[in-house]
Design a protein around this nucleic acid. Structure first.
Lengths: 180, 180
DNA sequence: CCTTTGTTTCTGTCTTTACAGAAATTAAAT
DNA sequence: ATTTAATTTCTGTAAAGACAGAAACAAAGG
């Protein structure tokens, strides 16, 4: 499949963006391609379109499937796998956030909790340091539990909340005890 | 300076985390060190403590300063630079978010806007694809403007909002027109 | 059961990034 | 101005990651 210059630019940039956030370039590019395109593609289609090795496509697709961003489809009278990407932007965002949380933030939280506990009995550590460790932990926990709450809301509600923006802040500071 | 095992674990993990998010390991480690420690450190102190080359420390510190996460201090009768890290967790978070937004999200937004405009006149691109490009753009814009609003609020208010969590959602769906 | 088609795993190469050590630069103190 | 201390920039090496091509594997059809 031949890409229009605009789509090419889009996909290349998306790949670039990926690398800056620790995502493999090819993975990001394939994701962008499958997102933009309006029909399922085979691994060979992708390979031709992006000019990457077959094996690279295969591994990247596996990665994307493990993230839940891409699914396999079959077409009548064709035994090849056809791949389609999740098409809803908010859903994509939700999936990526959720997955990174699970893969990176959760393990981090575990380690930080261990450290906080060890620090309690480690008299080499100054009280001020211990306090800071606790603060980081508290920060991440508030953030994650907050996130867990918000992710349940429908996108339209989240959009409303985002657009209310700082008005919400005024509201919050009216009542609501600060139980930090 | 000798590190207690707990601090070592903390710092190593922080470095590990950094790499997963596109931050240089040493940069992340030095940041963690300076954050945890309760006094300014010289480049040589850091070098000894973390066992990395002097040049590496120098470059990493420059990087951290460019992010606004570390500042130089001078002590009476000592011409060496002493480095201190920002100590407030919420402020650190704000600075990092802001900086990454500036360095990565803003340029992305520019490219995506260019693409969206080019796509309008590019008849190789299907209508559905164009629509998806617009949706991504819209999504990022809502997110960024929302963020711009919330970052002005004091942390205590944000904490309150986060803790209200999904209750806010119920509120938002009561009134508030959905002007998407 | 053998052939064809499709997919994955393996192996080696290339590219990028991280880093150490040396050289060069800057700046303070005498 | 010269010496000394401090810091940065430069250069080469090492490690990690990305990727292509080949080989191996799996499965469907005849």
């Amino acid at each position: 499949m031949k890409l229009s210059p605009t789509m090419q630019k889009y996909i290349v940039h998306w790949g670039e963006m990926g690398t800056r956030w620790g995502v493999n370039r090819t993975v990001a590019q394939i994701h962008a391609l499958l997102f933009l395109v309006n029909h399922p593609m085979t691994a060979d289609d992708i390979m031709e379109t992006l000019n990457v090795a077959r094996s690279n496509v295969s591994n990247s697709l596996k990665e994307l499937q493990s993230w839940g961003l891409v699914k396999v489809q079959h077409e009548l009278g064709d035994r090849r796998d056809h791949f389609v990407a999740l098409q809803d932007v908010w859903e994509i965002f939700r999936v990526i956030t959720e997955e990174r949380k699970k893969r990176e933030l959760d393990p981090t939280l575990t380690v930080l909790r261990e450290c906080a506990i060890e620090a309690e009995t480690d008299f080499e550590i100054e009280a001020a340091t211990r306090k800071k460790m606790d603060e980081v932990l508290e920060f991440l926990e508030v953030l994650m539990y907050g996130y867990d709450d918000f992710k349940k809301l429908p996108p339209s509600t989240v959009i409303k909340l985002l657009k209310m923006g700082s008005k919400l802040g005024q509201l919050a500071s009216l009542f609501g005890k600060d139980d930090t």
